[in-house]
Amino acid sequence: MMDNTTNSVQTMAEMTQNGVSPEVLFWVGCAGSFDDRSKKITKAFVELLQSANVSFAVLGPEESCTGDPAKRSGNEFLFQMQASTNIEVLNGYQVKKIVTACPHCFNTLKNEYPQLGGQYEVLHHTQFLYQLIEEGRLKIDSKTEYKGKKITFHDPCYLGRANKEYDAPRALIKKLNAELVEMKSCKEKGLCCGAGGAQMFKDAEKGDKEINIERTEQALETNSEIIAAGCPFCNTMLHDGVTNKEKESKVAVLDISQLLAQTESL
């Protein structure tokens, strides 16, 4: 990772002070800010934004949880408190366009903020990256190290079923000239990783298996070398699953931005 470049990431506050209005706000999210695995996704995505010369800013200390886990837990009150506070900040900076690497933040900002006064164009990072490539702003070396490698994609529930975006992440994998292989349940039928609905933050109810193990088994059945994810929570769940199956030396769980960042010709 090119750690030194992320140093130059600017906040909305700094940009506004300099009288600059960025093209897009990068909503980092809690996982992307604090979780070690997810921070790598954040950095990879920033690297791609910088290489495509996208003018972007983050909120930094002014960002706060979107309220997704509170709402899915049933705490509508806490959700709306979080949303109202965030909307005040976003509207204060007159933010128009938001991109995020977390499908939960993406869904909440896109679908649940408008009713509370937050109207933005919200994109998942795979959608934004695909646009950048199509516009020729982000260049991918087609002779990548992934050429011919088997990659399977795990649909995040809040990107797929919740918002019907199945194509953008797959289109990016194809840009890597990799062989995209589908799991037995994918797209509309994609199996959850087990983290949604605030399950990430609690133990599962009694059952005979963990959901992430079930999903990991489906992924391993494809004999892929890489399990591509588009959500920091899925990423963690599947990584835990692969570790549980003692396959971590053979199968990598990586976000699509990480796959792209490793190939892109800087």
């Binding site: 980092v28 809690c30 800010s33």
Partner: peptide
């Protein structure tokens, strides 16, 4: 979330630490 704006007990002021 109520206290520090994240589901984990991290300080909101540290949200940009990853960049450094």
């Amino acid at each position: 979330i109520e206290n520090n704006g994240a589901p984990w007990p991290f300080n909101q002021q540290d949200r940009l630490n990853w960049s450094k």
